[in-house]
Design a protein around this nucleic acid. Structure first.
Lengths: 343, 343
DNA sequence: CCACGATGTCGAAACGATTTTATGTAGTAA
DNA sequence: TTACTACATAAAATCGTTTCGACATCGTGG
């Protein structure tokens, strides 16, 4: 069905009584075909509901007009919003987007990258799930690539990320400003460059005011609700629980809140909670949640812009210095954070 | 870059000292090449990091191994979870997925469908944003199609949906069982078959117990937070406010909850809230939200299975009766619903 | 009246894979 | 030895486009 009844340029040419190359010229409106013939061809095209075969076109011109996007976890609203930015920008430039979810599995990510290469996508956007694997080597000389959110360690690559370090530095400063001294930080998995940068930012802020950086209150989660919940429970069973918790991802914040509710610990009276990543429910929550909001949509958009430049320069045979784009976040102060209670 | 350095079968053949057809036979392991030669070819393939050009292959065999997925609104977690189901199942059968977001705009949806046809995808999964437009005509004789979630009105098509009618019937019965008589229903836009079916289910349950179906408490929203909020506000400014609210989508429930908080109306003491669509925050909310949980992942999975059958039968030239698959939902009773308060 | 760009159209050769047909080489039996 | 079967490989046609060079037509200026 798919191809049986599909009309080709030859059919159109026959119906219009012109040659194939004329049809091609009309389809790609090269402007070298006379207006009367153009009209005839156009009529034939619409009559047959003809649409050119992208695969054949791609084979000939060596370009598919498809971009690949590989994300760690499509379940995370962060990546969905980035995807929107990617898609909108891609469409604007006539590209389609092949979306792959690696589900935080490096081998699946690799498989996706290989599949994208087989499809000969013109470029790849990658939110890698393992900053230590040398992914960039795998795609080198295959297709231009731009990393988003999570980038390879110590490698000069094109990437677009939030300024994680600064964001977290500011977040902790904010908590310190409220009088908190016992601050727990719950990070995502430390194989992600994002997590590492965020933790560093937190550390810096604490050290700056000579707060002891409590290793036991720096916990590594896995970005899912369960880990936040579990860590929350143990954190409050310790003899000297924190007065503020900063989760480096929004779903772990949900876990913390569940733990608090279960333990009947009032927020923000006894403990302040703050989270990286904003979400639509954050404002409606009771108490509404203080968050750091990333310019998520813009990350996707900027990444595509960078990728298209990269593709362009590759076809020009010019070399382009890898660019690192850092985007600023916003601190959304709400009700889940409050000055530390006197004890 | 993309194609400059890309090796072809000819290169592999040259390196291995065999003919192109032999390489092809090895790549598609047809099992007709001797074991020793196969080894030689394999070595050449890995040495060159060769991977076949999907476009060329597709051109020849008339199959791209790509499926298209068009959704109304990728921002809605429902579609993300369905997407996961689609992708996992697609990968399992060697397909890639081209994801498109129509953003609830019929013209954008149409544009996406045309683009997918141009790409010659082997099949399309469509969550249409307008049940009244005759989308199926547009794709007929182009590619097999399976509708998910939102289907065209009065048309015999392949589709996979939740049993919306029954789900809502049961939901309202549940509220009635708690003693509620003044029940407000907030639907999504009534151009979606889902909304229509859900409203019908609600109506049936109310009529069955001779509850007056209050047209003024049946409000049409647009599935976004704002509309829930706005409707919530007006609903409680009416002289005789409802004792229970059932939103037919989870984001509108967020809007309702915001309105309740702003108006200082306690839930569930003064009003019970219930929502279609479960979400990860629903359980953590305060009070935790009673929801109807759809088998979202399964919808995606089932849709791909159906689509692959459809593709198969199309290439067999056999005809297949359109199938409608109805999946059951689950009622998750939590704290936001309670017996009606005595006044 | 011829030479000459300019303009507009066409024919044919790619692009990289698959598949059919043809060819070659052994091995077996008459 | 010859013929015939098997089997492994080679060559060529094909899929639907794009694009380059060729060709025809025409008006203009010499």
């Amino acid at each position: 069905m798919t191809k049986r009844n599909a009309y080709t340029m030859r059919d159109v040419a026959r119906l219009a009584g012109v040659s194939i190359s004329t049809v091609s010229a009309v389809v790609n409106n090269k402007g070298i075909v006379g207006p009367d013939l153009t009209a005839v061809v156009q009529k034939a095209i619409t009559a047959m509901n003809f649409s050119p075969h992208a695969g054949a076109r791609g084979l000939r011109i060596g370009k598919t007009n498809i971009l690949g996007l590989v994300v760690q976890d499509i379940t995370n609203p962060f990546f969905v919003e980035a995807l929107r930015g990617v898609e909108d920008e891609a469409i604007k430039h006539g590209y389609e987007v092949l979306v792959c979810n690696s589900n935080d599995q490096p081998d699946l990510e690799l498989r996706h990258l290989n599949a994208l290469y087989t499809q000969r996508v013109d470029g790849v956007l990658l939110a890698t799930c393992d900053s230590y694997a040398a992914r960039q080597a795998l795609v080198r000389d295959r297709a231009p690539i731009v990393f988003i959110d999570c980038v390879p360690m110590k490698a000069e690559v094109n990437c677009v990320v939030t300024d994680n370090y600064d964001s977290c530095y500011n977040a902790i400063r904010y908590l310190i400003g409220l009088g908190h001294e016992r601050i727990a930080v719950i990070s995502g998995r430390l194989v992600h460059s994002t997590s590492i940068a965020r933790v560093e930012g937190c550390r810096k802020a604490m050290q700056e005011v000579n707060l002891p950086v409590l290793e036991e209150s720096l916990r590594e989660g896995d970005s899912h609700i369960e880990s936040g919940y579990r860590i929350g429970l143990t954190l409050f069973q310790s003899p000297d629980p924190p007065t503020a918790i900063f989760t480096l991802n929004n779903r772990m914040a949900l876990g913390i809140l569940r733990a608090l509710r279960e333990l009947q610990i009032p927020c923000p009276e006894r403990v302040s909670v703050m989270s990286f990543d904003d979400a639509d429910w954050a404002e409606v929550f009771n108490p509404s949640l203080t968050t750091i909001k990333q310019p998520t949509y813009e990350i996707g958009k900027a990444a595509v812009e960078l990728l298209l430049q990269s593709i362009q320069s590759a076809s020009d045979e010019t070399t382009l210095e890898p660019r690192q784009i850092l985007l600023k976040s916003t601190l959304c102060a709400r009700d889940s954070t409050a000055p530390v209670a006197k004890s």
